[in-house]
Write a protein that binds this DNA or RNA. Structure first.
Length: 775
DNA sequence: AGCACGCCGACT
DNA sequence: GTCGGCGTGCTC
């Protein structure tokens, strides 16, 4: 059915459509434009095009005159009569695709929330000739014939395969079907399934809108900062700002004012946040303040809803977009400013799926649109802090003392008053406990133990932080050292004592715990490492009457769901403040504690383990530990913090106990020094190349070849590390090899060339090459 | 990522 | 011969 048309050489201009396909395909494909669509296509439209045997949605990126004597397939239809994305977004996606070296079609698909819902399904029926044919009854062909003879009309392939009793995607079935079609025995029809235009639900209209809440008051230098940015918004100047050392409440107050300024000027705003659930109150405030104009975009918003938001953006009804990563591509008209809150959060750069950095895209978009880009964080990324210090970004800080601890009541329009400043800035007492001397089986040090006892006897709340869920990191055999590893991932499996199971946190595979060592038969199996379950067990043993709550991914119902509606996150507020006070409570949690809304201060925060992964190969780990500890210290309010560690001299841990602003300057000075020494970002631009494949030798061979080619092609000022085994070495049954390029300038072009060279030298089929630019 | 095509070994 | 598995390369 695929209509191959030969375009005559005298065809008038613009008869070929350049279409980006949402597949791992580096090329842009050309399609013939049928007469009925000539003059009706513009870039950014979704097109239904044939690809191989199926039909899929592609994105028109341009029109060209005939390029060769290629025989092209024809566009089947245009899926909308207007472009689904505008030129600005198309160009931005194109930039991102090139910079991050990701396929353009996938980038565009990521940029368009929803609207990728078209799939095709094959239907078959016998031709007249086919009804007469005879075949050996038991052969595949015979079975297909007899099934189809009993049916009338088109039969979907799913039904066909079920009646025959073969797997839907089995090779031989499709093979024989296409042979039969070629021989004229069968007719095939490929139909589109999936809804085209999701029905539009009725939305709030202007009359439903509540009276907007007024803006919160600004304090001290906050107002100066707002005025400064206001000028830039008015003038329309690309200026990256780094708002560092500014607490969340204060940042949000500033954002609200800036957003309001944009709206007054008839400009829109993009506000990126790393995750929805910890920001529910911000979203609520925005909706109350700018009712009806706020659109929320994130991965769990339903297709229909997204489609709706997009059309309301297009109609100009929504001009404030709050969203996660992919919201950076939201097609608002005339944005006046982009805000990336918690700019150091790794989720802007998540490592699965399409690799692009939303913060990088935000800066690029701001540059193109000539608008300020605000990066906000309480403890910014080391790179951005350095850029701030060196003037690449405008660094603005509002150290805590200047902000009020208690936010002014909503709607109070009192002017900024320096006297509202709270004299008693919280200064928790921080103690570092060196665990190196302790018995390996010690979970809670004496100091932590006695502090817990002290606090709960007073009815206070205690938080014990553990960075691993489960009971223990792994189980090993004391006699032969055998450790239980995931069969697919070359990593130890986490032990769950309650469930009596082992689970791989990388691929979710789980297994029973054997009684004896499968290697030597010994029954002396022992747990290694500390997880939340184990701490819980220990705490219940030592404090049998205390109320103990465990809070990690395993205890949160529907932990995968982070939707705004019906979010199942437990908050950390005491269920019943009046009565609970007496008893005290011990909360044992992972970093989920920091991401849950509604935290109330704990009298004691005990960090049971925070540094157990400091040896992992990630140059940003120190920052992560530092940030984590800061967050935990904040949870202690004026209380007490006890940090147990095996690395007491690590700069992240040393710094955090510094009374002046948790050693922020000290940490960054030191960390920037390390980065400079080792040539890590911001002193280089970095690319991580990972080769992954089921075949170990092949994977090693190809990565070594690529390493050699890169080595040859890279010039002075760049450095190639590796290839070396990845971490983990094997993931989901695929062997992994890795190399890192550190360079003083972008190396995308060299990588592209080198990969082409590799392809001419040896086949890379069965190997996935994953490029991570600016990881 | 699909999916077809080609090669090969086994079955009958 | 026909079936089925696997590796390789292409998709306008």
């Amino acid at each position: 059915m695929s209509s191959s048309v030969k375009i005559p050489s005298d065809t008038s201009k613009g008869r070929i459509a350049l279409v980006a396909i949402p597949r791992r395909l580096d090329k842009v494909l050309s399609y013939a434009i049928p007469d009925r669509l000539i003059g009706r296509l513009s870039p950014g439209m979704r097109l239904l095009v044939p690809l191989g045997r199926s039909k899929i949605t592609g994105y028109l990126i341009g029109v060209s005159v005939q390029d060769g004597s290629h025989s092209l397939k024809e566009i089947i239809e245009a899926l909308n009569d207007t472009p689904i994305i505008n030129n600005e977004i198309l160009e931005l996606a194109r930039w991102a695709s090139e910079y991050y070296m990701q396929p353009l079609g996938l980038m565009i698909r990521a940029a368009i929330p929803g609207g990728n819902n078209l799939k095709s399904r094959e239907y078959f029926k016998l031709t007249d000739q086919g009804t007469k044919i005879k075949a050996t009854p038991n052969s595949m062909k015979g079975r297909i014939l007899s099934v189809l003879k009993d049916k009338t009309g088109w039969v979907p392939i799913s039904e066909l395969s079920k009646d025959i009793g073969v797997e839907l995607r089995e090779n031989r079935l499709t093979r024989i079907l296409s042979n039969m079609k070629r021989d004229g025995i069968l007719d095939e029809d490929i139909r589109i399934i999936g809804k085209r235009d999701p029905s539009r639900k009725k939305r709030k209209t202007a009359s439903d809108i509540k009276h907007p809440a007024s803006l919160p008051s600004l304090y001290g230098r906050e107002a100066d900062l707002v005025n400064e940015v206001k000028d830039l918004i008015n003038k329309g100047t690309y200026t990256p700002y780094l708002l560092a050392e500014i607490k969340k409440d204060t940042r949000q107050r500033i954002y609200l004012h800036l957003i309001s300024l944009c709206i007054e000027k008839g400009k829109g705003v993009l506000l990126l946040i790393p995750e929805i659930s910890p920001n529910l109150s911000l979203i609520k405030t925005l909706e109350d303040t700018f009712s009806g104009r706020v659109g929320l975009l994130h991965s769990r918003i339903s297709e229909g809803r997204r489609f709706d938001i997009l059309s309301r953006i297009r109609e100009g009804k929504i001009d404030i977009i709050v969203g996660t990563r992919s919201a950076i591509f939201a097609p608002i008209d005339l944005p006046g400013m982009i805000i990336v809150d918690e700019e150091d959060d790794p989720s802007y750069k998540q490592d699965k799926g399409l690799r692009y950095n939303a913060k990088g895209v935000a800066l690029k978009r701001g540059e193109r649109l000539n608008i300020p880009v605000i990066l906000g964080s309480s403890a910014p990324s080391v790179e951005d802090f350095y850029y701030g210090m060196t003037g690449v970004y405008k660094l603005r800080t509002l150290p805590e003392e200047e902000g009020p601890r208690i936010q002014g009541s909503k709607g109070s329009n009192e002017p900024a008053n320096p006297r509202t400043k709270d004299p008693s800035t919280p200064q928790p007492l921080i103690k570092i406990v060196d665990m190196r001397g302790a018995n390996g089986r010690t979970i809670l040090s004496d100091q932590l133990n006695s502090s817990i006892a002290n606090r709960i006897s007073k009815g206070d709340r205690v938080l014990l932080f553990v960075n691993k869920r489960g009971f223990s990191n792994s189980i090993i055999c004391q006699d032969c050292g055998y450790s239980f590893r995931c069969p697919d991932c070359a990593l130890s499996m986490t032990y769950y004592k309650g469930l009596k199971r082992l689970s791989c946190h990388y691929c979710n595979k789980s297994a029973c715990v054997p009684e004896t060592c499968p290697d030597c038969g010994s029954s002396r199996l022992t747990e290694v490492g500390i997880g939340t379950e184990r701490v819980e067990e220990e705490v219940r043993k030592i404090f049998p009457s205390a109320k103990v709550v465990r809070l990690d991914k395993d205890t949160i119902k529907g932990s995968r769901g982070q939707g705004v509606k019906g979010s199942s996150h437990r908050t950390l507020e005491p269920a019943n403040p009046g009565t609970l006070r007496k008893e005290g409570e011990i909360v044992i949690g992972t970093d989920i504690v920091l991401r849950s809304p509604g935290n109330h201060p704990f009298a004691l925060v005990g960090v049971v383990s925070a540094d157990t992964c400091l040896h992992l190969p990630d140059f940003r780990l120190s920052h992560r530990v530092y940030k984590l500890l800061r967050g935990l210290i904040d949870l202690a309010g004026k209380g007490e913090v006890i940090i147990q560690t095996h690395n007491p001299s690590h700069h992240a841990i040393e710094a955090v106990s510094d009374p002046t602003n948790m050693g922020l300057d000290r940490f960054y000075q030191k960390e920037i020094g390390f980065r400079r020494e080792l040539g890590y970002p911001p002193f280089s631009s970095m690319v991580i190349i990972t080769l992954e494949g089921g075949n170990a030798e092949r994977c090693m061979d190809r990565s070594q070849r690529l390493g050699k080619i890169l080595h040859r092609n890279l010039d002075k000022g760049t450095e190639l590390l590796g290839p070396a085994r990845g971490y983990p070495e094997i993931l989901r049954g695929r062997h992994r090899w890795q190399m890192i390029i550190k360079g003083d300038r972008p190396v995308q072009e060299i990588i592209r060339r080198s990969m082409e060279e590799l392809n001419t030298e040896a086949s890379t089929s069965g190997i996935r090459i994953d490029l991570d630019i600016d990881p």
